[in-house]
Design a protein around this nucleic acid. Structure first.
Lengths: 191, 191
DNA sequence: GCCGTTTTGTACCCAGTAGTACTGAATGCG
DNA sequence: CGCATTCAGTACTACTGGGTACAAAACGGC
């Protein structure tokens, strides 16, 4: 009944994610996104709102994707430690070597001054909370795999801290081996 | 022989550090620094160079201060584990509660897009390297305090990762108790 | 008291950026 | 085909921010 859209919003959100991820939220100008996507600014505004709203959409999708993957990997049967190891090692390609330099979009955003935007901060906090919940649930339900006195809550949180540290240090492009060794060492806490 | 300076560079660097720390490198405008310090822009430029150079000076001082403190605490005699525990717990006030929200200036800078500036990236990498060296040296020299097979290099790096994670998560203003519990749990790796 | 030198502060320039008319184009429907 | 409706793209505005020219001011030395 009217002129149809000439682009797929999902594709544009993916392109925007790449730009935001590479340059950071503050440092990314809308012109760079229009250049990368071929979509003019008024169309972006009509489809996604202003820069903050666009980034929030990008970030929420990013979070959903990571949570979906974590949920799948952490739900596998067998050893809880191996499930968590698989989840953590899955990040190695994206947090080591040259590819890792961009780090984690979410953690980058948390230190971007983007935190002034309440929506964005809430999204990040919610993501961390849900991630920790997934780990905690798995450790809790498998607590008899571990020795007496094992603390699922504290251990889950500690793994989140470790994960955050690895993703924050990704900007230094460490060697994959080094990351793997750290993961293995910390997983000895699951005993 | 000429008009004297009307401000102390060290004081100005401290004020600039506070502003950068609170708002982030990119998000801080020079106008905010002139407003906070009372120093006009041309004086800032004459004394410190452009924005990047100013931030680099601030960051280097920050690093020196943290390294100096780490060196002092980690040099204390007795248990290596207790020395490291004291070093880590010393960060609790600045990485938990409302005061912690600003996180760590260095880690924030690493994800600020400030990394495009090679000087700044080098400074951060050098800081992390020297920090890890301090830990490694202490763990190595006291390796007979630990069980056979203890790996000082890997353990030192893991502690740096943990420390980075704690400082990155500081933006969420966690409870001090939680941070302390994580530290205690990870220090059981030193056995 | 005057002069060269360095600092100071106002006022400015220019590039870049978020956000917005406004005109023209593409559709479905009658 | 005509028309209402929605999208696309150019061009613009208003503003901010980094950086600087220039003239006045504050010193030490003569």
């Amino acid at each position: 009944m009217a002129r149809p859209r000439s682009f797929e919003p999902d594709k544009v959100l993916e392109i925007a994610r790449e730009v935001f991820w590479r340059k950071g939220f503050q440092a990314t100008s809308l012109d760079e996104i229009t250049a990368a996507s071929g979509i003019a600014k008024p169309s972006l505004y009509a489809a996604f709102g202003d820069k903050n709203a666009l980034f929030l959409k990008v970030l929420d999708r990013y979070h959903e994707r990571l949570l979906g993957w974590a949920e799948r990997v952490l739900a596998q049967p067998g050893s809880a430690r191996e499930a968590i190891r698989q989840w953590l090692t899955g990040f190695i390609p994206s947090c080591s070597g040259e590819k890792g330099r961009r780090g984690c979009l979410s953690i980058n955003a948390a230190t971007d001054g983007a935190l002034d935007q309440l929506d964005i901060r809430k999204s990040i906090e919610r993501y961390n909370k849900r991630l920790e919940e997934l780990l905690r649930a798995r450790l809790r339900s498998d607590r008899d795999q571990f020795k007496k006195g094992f603390d699922p809550e504290l251990t889950a949180h500690t793994i989140v801290v470790l994960h955050t540290g690895l993703m924050a240090l990704a900007h230094q492009a460490p060697e994959p081996k080094k990351v793997k060794a750290v993961i293995d060492l910390v997983l000895t806490l699951l005993a």
